[in-house]
Each structure stands twice: as structure tokens, then as C-alpha cells.
Amino acid sequence: MRVRVKDICFFSLCLMAAATAISLLFIIIGYILWHGAPAINFAFLTEGSRDFGAAGGVFYQTTGTVLLMFTAGLIALPIALGTVLFSHVYLGPSYKKTTDLFIYALNGVPTIIFGLLGYIIIGEGLHLGVSWVTGSIILAVMILPSMAVSIDEALSAMPHKYRDAALVLGLGRWHLIRTLLLPRSLPGVLTGLFLGLARAAGETAAIMFTATAFSGVGLPRGISEPVATLQTHILVLAGEATNPRALTNAWGAALILVTLVLALSLTAMFIRRQVRMEAEI
């Protein structure tokens, strides 16, 4: 009987924990919706901001976030793919652990460090300044490891026999890559791309010194100009917590950002699940 009581207590506690965790998500999403939705209207989505963000819309900020994110993805993807293919096809198995260790190390670097070093190395060292291109390179470095991990997962899930069957026909490394590994890595590439884009879109610390400017917002005229982003827009408006109009706009921007990031993450999760299901067959 005592066992039964203990079990009931144990499961109730676990259930409460799970319920808390899930309700946290709903509270957070609900809170963002509740505060953000009143700000959203056609003008908010299509107009530039005025009065240092307290009035007007977030059109340029949204465009800036998307621009930075896509450029970062464009830079990071080929490097991630190349890294994984090289380690699978050209390196011996004994290097695998070391390679993984380096990728995970890079993945663990706090993003604020990317922000600080990125500015000194790329912004000043390469004379690219606070700009679209500086921010994109920094974000690319930041999302590179998660892309590499996704691609690696897809390739590692491929049964060995396919590779053997291809090599036994006398296929060289390049043809092995082209005919077998590239098609096979596609789901991993897509998962990694969407995960990376989501991370890049949500990141603030890495770009607040390096890519964005708050005032004088418009579309950047070139890659060496700063861009406005939703993330830094929210950050600045959050500092004006006393001004209710600024705060409403911050919530509106947050709602757009969360929608964008969650859409990207859900897409990544969906693709990954398809791959897992296929791998189980």
C-alpha cells in the first residue's frame, strides 16, 4: 500500500512538472499574442518606423532580419555541407570524434563572443564596418555548426550497404558524393538550413554591435551598409519600458519575429521527422 502512495505522489509531481512546462509555452505565446496583436495592422507591416520606433511600422526591420538571415544561410550552408562531406568521404573514421568535438565546440560558443570578436576581426580588421555583410558573416559562423550536425545526422543514418554497393562498382569519391551522398543529404541540408535560419533570425547579441543601426532606417543600399532588424528594434524599445506606445510596438515586432522563427523551426522539425520515419523503414 505504501508503494502505491509513493507512486501516486511521484507521478503527480512529474505530471505537475510536465503541465507547468507545457503551460509555460502557452502562457508565453499567449502573452506575446495578447500584447502584440493590437499593434499589428497593415500600416505596421508596410511602413517604416518614426519617433525612434515609438510610432510607425517595422517594415524595414522585418526586411533586415530576413536579409541578414538569408545571407548568413547562403554563406554557411556550402561550408557546412563541405565540412561534413569531407569528413565522411576523405577522412578516416579515427578523425570522426575529433571533428565532432570541434563542431560541438563551435556550437557552444556564447553568441555575445561572436558579436564582440566579429566586430573587431571583420568590422575593423577587414574594414567592413557595422554592416549587412559583417553581420551575415558572424551569423553564418554562428549557425554553421548546427547545420553541419543536421547534415551529418542525415548521412550517418544512411545504411552502410549503399555506400559499399556504390564503391564496389568503382565509383570514385566525387561520384560517390554526387550520385549517392548529395541526394541522401538533402533532407539533412534542408533541416539544417531551416534550423540555421531560425537561429539567425532570433539572434540579437551577435549582431547588436556589428550589423544594425537604429536610427535613419531604410533598406540598406549595399552590403556595406547597416541594416535594421526586428531583434535589435525590440531590444531598444524594451529599454523604453515607460513609454507605452514604444512597448506596444515592441510587442508587435516580437509577434512578427516569433511567428517567423517558429515557422522556420516547425518546418525544420517537420522535415526531420519525415527523415526519421523513412530511416525506420
Binding site: 507545457i22 509555460l24 502573452y31 540579437t204 525590440i234 523551426s265
Partner: peptide, 17 residues
């Protein structure tokens, strides 16, 4: 998946909350 969504919410939005 819901928990992964919780992980995906940007830090700056958490800050705002």
C-alpha cells in the same frame, strides 16, 4: 515538439517578457 518550440523563441523576446 512543443518543448522544442519553447526553445526556439528568441532570447530578446524572453527578455521583453
Amino acid at each position: 515538439s512543443l518543448m522544442e518550440m519553447l526553445a526556439a523563441i528568441p532570447g530578446v523576446v524572453y527578455g521583453l517578457i
